[in-house]
Design a protein around this nucleic acid. Structure first.
Length: 590
RNA sequence: GACUCCGUAGCUCAGUUGGAUAGAGCAGCCGCCUUCUAAGCGGCAGGUCGCAGGUUCGAAUCCUGCCGGGGUCGCCA
């Protein structure tokens, strides 16, 4: 299905025969070369760099890479799918495929329908994608939204490529911040019972969103939590606050069509049925000799006034490439956040995940190497962790930055943005950028219905394709417009350069999915869809000047059916691709 | 000071994990609507890929050193 992977195999087979003839060494790594679409279309359909990659190994039997290339090209020319194979430049092998190969790909895409581009289930094992994991202390802001959309699209992408994916959210409900939240909620509780609370004191969360938590507490406990010391109500206040905040966060995520399969509570690590899992994780590391009591050098740079040189419990993360060993216990004896996180990641490993992906904000970048070290240590190398960092989002409106300040309380929440511009715009724009590059998000531009707005540009391409298919029903009998009829169409009639370009882009779809999934980079799919949309718009407009290029042509019914088959596949790829990104593919844009 | 991400057209950014003559959108200029949606398309112009070395058949991409910007830097999460 992926012709690039397919030809990689064929060329590898040719190399093997040369190995068998003794002119290349037996231990040749046949995965080192690539088969890819050449940048310049005049170079053919496929380009392989095998001869140059193996130039060193070939030195003994071939005087230069071109000689090896020409032997490979000669063998390839025998392939029934190859129109020509030529050596170019320093030793590229440029392959031109016979037209029927593309017809076959198109037919295959028709047969597979929505499954076209999907990968076969990989034996690599289960994948866990942890994303969002925003503290349950308030509404999500736009930065959280980027991580949320990125993680969700990545999970979709991995699933589409054949992986077994679990989406997970880690609730940070154990630290001092949630105690502050609980106190803030208790204040709102008193307010709900009719007390005048005045201004919210410094150090507590001022947001109105805690009012409903206060009301819940009042309804649930009446005034029974009123005249009591904090130790007697904080438990209840905390539970209600976290519950309320998580409900709000889930609601905000739902507005973006994001749902997690598992919400994992940090508190459950020490208070759950499994006992103290943090202690267990530390014990496991200690058993491997990776935990010790020792001292750390003071941090360089900014002088820390409260620095105190003391002996502490440390994880030997330097054994796995970290810069310094990391503390597991705080001075008050409690676990550090890192210790809890170690235990959390241990549960992921114990639950059988082979690949862990964490999506974090860029401000946590300094945390990556210690976490990777922990995963490597805990899993004894059987599981790997990839941390994807999402850079900041700069919110703009018509080119002017939108001021966001938490202090004045007028910061823009994710929900406000989604409500203003819509789920599709938020999702696509968040994905139309590499995750580790800062993102400018212009509220005015993303609702603009023009080619300046990539969301509409791609959706419009899909709508146009669907429009042609709708239009076809006016003049063409129903029985000729079935998928079966399309599969039987003479696709060899599609010879216009514009059509061929579109078909070749379609042929790249499985490769794009594979590459984007392998690199954990959903933005590659977004850019591919934009390119495909552009090719479709271009071909469409050419039909304005040259009516014979239009998809519908009443004088040539067989050609029309072949073209409609192409349009159907185009709509399918656009729809599937947008689906992976979590963006809708409307049938019309009116 | 250490670590990390970034630096590509005037602006916002891609660049297929090292490939051939570095691309797209905006902004600027010039064109294309009787006909499947002009919410679109075509063309022109625009570059020392931050700088300097190195690695090799080949570097925007990998390594080293500088310059500039963001982030982080025992006990917060």
């Amino acid at each position: 299905m992926n012709i690039y992977a397919d030809f990689h195999h064929r060329i590898a087979a040719i190399l093997e025969t040369i190995v068998a003839s003794g002119r290349l060494p037996a231990e040749l790594d046949l995965n080192r070369f690539v088969v890819e679409p050449p940048r310049d279309p005049s170079h053919g359909d496929l380009a392989a760099n095998a001869a140059m990659v193996y130039a060193k190994e070939a030195k003994a039997s071939f005087s230069n890479p071109r000689q090896l290339a020409s032997e490979i090209a000669f063998a390839l020319a025998e392939d029934q799918d190859v129109a020509s194979a030529e050596v170019a430049g320093p030793g590229f092998i440029n392959i031109l495929l016979k037209p029927e190969v593309f017809g076959r790909i198109l037919r295959r895409a028709l047969e597979l329908g929505a499954d076209f581009g999907k990968g076969a289930a990989k034996a690599a094992g289960k994948v866990n994608v942890e994303y969002v994991s925003a503290n349950p202390t308030g509404p999500m802001h736009v930065g959280h939204g980027r991580g949320a959309v990125f993680g969700d699209a990545l999970a979709n992408l991995l699933e589409f490529s054949g992986a077994d994916v679990t989406r997970e959210y880690y609730i940070n409900d154990a630290g001092a911040q949630v105690d502050v939240l609980a106190r803030s909620a208790h204040l709102r509780y008193r307010e709900a019972l009719g007390e005048a609370i005045g201004d919210i004191p410094e150090g507590l969360y001022p947001g109105d969103y805690l009012k409903s938590v206060g009301a819940t507490l009042a309804a649930r406990f009446g005034d029974s939590l009123l005249e009591r010391p904090e130790t007697e109500w904080i438990e209840q206040a905390r539970a209600a606050a976290i519950e309320g905040m998580m409900a709000m966060i889930r609601d905000d995520l739902a507005a973006l069509d994001i749902t997690h399969a598992i919400f994992f509570s940090e508190r459950s690590l020490t208070r759950g049925e499994a006992g103290d899992q943090v202690a267990a994780a530390i014990a496991a590391l200690r058993a491997d000799g990776l935990v010790y009591e020792g001292r750390l050098p003071p941090p360089k740079g900014q002088p820390a006034e409260d620095w105190e040189d003391r002996e502490q419990t440390l994880f030997r993360s330097t054994a796995f490439g970290d810069d310094v060993d990391r503390p597991l216990l705080k001075s008050d004896g409690g676990y550090t956040y890192f210790a809890s996180d170690i235990a959390y990641h241990k549960t992921k490993i114990d639950r059988g995940f082979a690949l862990l992906i964490d999506v974090w904000g860029a401000d946590h970048g300094g945390y990556v190497s210690r976490m990777r070290a922990a995963v490597e240590a805990l899993s004894h190398g059987r599981a790997s962790l990839d941390v994807k960092l999402c850079q900041l989002v700069k919110l703009m409106r018509a080119g002017e930055p939108v001021k966001m300040s938490k202090r004045s309380g007028d910061f823009v929440t994710l929900r406000e943005v989604v409500d203003e511009v819509g789920r599709d715009a938020v999702r696509f724009m968040m994905l139309f950028r590499k995750n580790d590059a800062p993102l400018e998000f212009d509220l005015a531009k993303v609702i603009e219905q023009s080619k300046d707005n990539p969301v509409f540009y791609v959706q419009y391409a899909h709508a146009r394709a669907r429009s042609v298919l709708r239009q076809a029903h006016v003049s063409i009998p129903e029985h000729r417009l079935t998928t079966a009829a399309f599969e039987e169409a003479d696709l060899g009639l599609l010879v216009d350069p514009g059509e061929l370009h579109l078909i070749k882009l379609v042929a790249q779809f499985p490769r794009v999915i594979e590459a984007a999934a392998g690199a954990h980079e959903p933005h590659r799919l977004a850019f591919y869809l934009h390119e495909l949309a552009s090719a479709l718009h271009g071909h469409w407009t050419r039909g304005k000047d040259q009516p014979q290029l239009r998809f519908l042509n009443e004088e040539m019914p067989n050609l029309t059916i072949a073209r409609l088959a192409l349009v159907k596949v185009l709509a399918g790829v656009l729809s599937a691709g947008l689906g992976v990104l979590g963006v809708s593919a409307p049938d019309e844009m009116r």
